[in-house]
Amino acid sequence: MNSVAFYLLLLLLISVATPPSTTATTIGVTYSTPPSISPSSAALSPDRIAAQVVSMKIPAVRLLDSNPSMIRAFAYTNVSVFLSVPNPLVPLLASNRSLAMRWCYRHVLPFYPRTRITIISVGNDVVSYSPDVSPFLLRAMQNVHLSLADLRIYKISVSTTFSFFNVVPTAFPPSSAQFQEPTGEVIIRPILQFLERTNSSFLINLFPYNMYRSSFSIPIGFALFEEGPFNFRDDLTTGVRYRNLFDMMVDAVISSMAVMGHENLPVIVAETGWPSSGIDAGEVDATLLYSEMFLKALLAHLRSGGGTPLRKEGVAEVYVFELVEKEAKQGVRNWGLLHHNMTSKYSFEFSDGGKGRRFVEVLVGFFVEVVMLCLLM
């Protein structure tokens, strides 16, 4: 075999083995420990939940209650873990640096880096559920960030999670979106400055279902990623055509950040989904069929790597709410990917099963064999 042919084969092998420069969004799930203790709840041990996440090939999980036993269960799994500080603790962590250090000692230090903790959200939708706590958010975030630095932990980002519905009053057109005032100026602007300084991400709970229910002008197909003659919205200011509600809401967040001079901050969707049942009979669109349609289309859209019109790389991570349904109760929406007995509710696989990776592996194997045969000639 001549040297030119050999090097051509070698270059082809390298090009196939090298991953593409753009990667699709990381897609994870949320999980919180069931609030009540019952025989069925007890069966959902941390080890069982971690094993389920690994078996479903889910690369990231958001632990809404940051149970230390659950954090430990994800050690050595290669699943990235997103922790949350409960809202009632926010004022305490803000007022007392030693308490922030104590929280890190209990929830981070014993497990990191064996457990791949990547993000800590200080509070979850505090503006909505605990408005009196909002003024403490930034100081609590700073104290947690400084505590991690004191522990020589520098690769865990610190942020807080907002709810789209409570901080972005107008989603359309996205180019005109701004954060709700006075929350935007008083609470969000200084937090954006902190996130910029610390290379952290803006976290948002974003549910197209809620936006769809709030406006009669939004077709169900637009919310479910369906192609159709009426399933689009045009932003006349930018000339952009939106073909799904999810992208429109993401771009409304990006535009709102841009108004405050932080349009380049990474965005993580900390919660999203579509309920399979509603609180009452009036929620006619909270069905298993629509839930499955939304989730399948969302996963396909995110895996395509197409991003949104205002951000070609798209959002960095998306967490589907939620992994396991709570025990059935009247008047509670069901969102889980799995029933409480851990059986799947849906006919599709949440993970793509590494099909793209296996395809590359097959190609690499083929070219390795070709090179070896040529060397033997």
Results as ranks from 00 to 15, higher is better:
residue 247 D to R: 09
residue 234 D to M: 03
residue 259 V to L: 11
residue 228 G to P: 08
residue 237 T to F: 11
residue 265 L to Y: 10
residue 253 V to K: 12
residue 238 T to E: 02
residue 267 V to K: 12
residue 235 D to C: 04
residue 239 G to K: 00
residue 251 D to N: 06
residue 255 S to M: 09
residue 249 M to T: 02
residue 250 V to C: 03
residue 228 G to I: 06
residue 248 M to D: 03
residue 248 M to H: 03
residue 257 M to A: 12
residue 250 V to N: 10
residue 240 V to L: 13
residue 254 I to S: 00
residue 261 G to V: 15
residue 234 D to W: 00
residue 233 R to Y: 11
residue 256 S to M: 05
residue 262 H to S: 14
residue 238 T to R: 01
residue 229 P to M: 05
residue 228 G to R: 02
residue 255 S to E: 03
residue 258 A to L: 06
residue 248 M to E: 12
residue 233 R to C: 02
residue 252 A to Q: 08
residue 233 R to F: 15
residue 253 V to E: 07
residue 250 V to K: 10
residue 252 A to T: 02
residue 228 G to H: 07
residue 261 G to Y: 09
residue 251 D to R: 05
residue 263 E to F: 11
residue 241 R to K: 04
residue 243 R to N: 15
residue 268 I to N: 04
residue 229 P to S: 13
residue 265 L to H: 13
residue 267 V to L: 14
residue 241 R to I: 07
residue 236 L to R: 07
residue 268 I to S: 13
residue 253 V to Y: 07
residue 234 D to K: 00
residue 259 V to H: 08
residue 248 M to R: 11
residue 241 R to E: 05
residue 237 T to M: 11
residue 238 T to N: 00
residue 237 T to H: 08
residue 262 H to R: 15
residue 259 V to Y: 08
residue 235 D to W: 01
residue 261 G to P: 02
residue 257 M to I: 03
residue 237 T to Y: 13
residue 240 V to F: 10
residue 239 G to R: 00
residue 250 V to D: 05
residue 227 E to C: 12
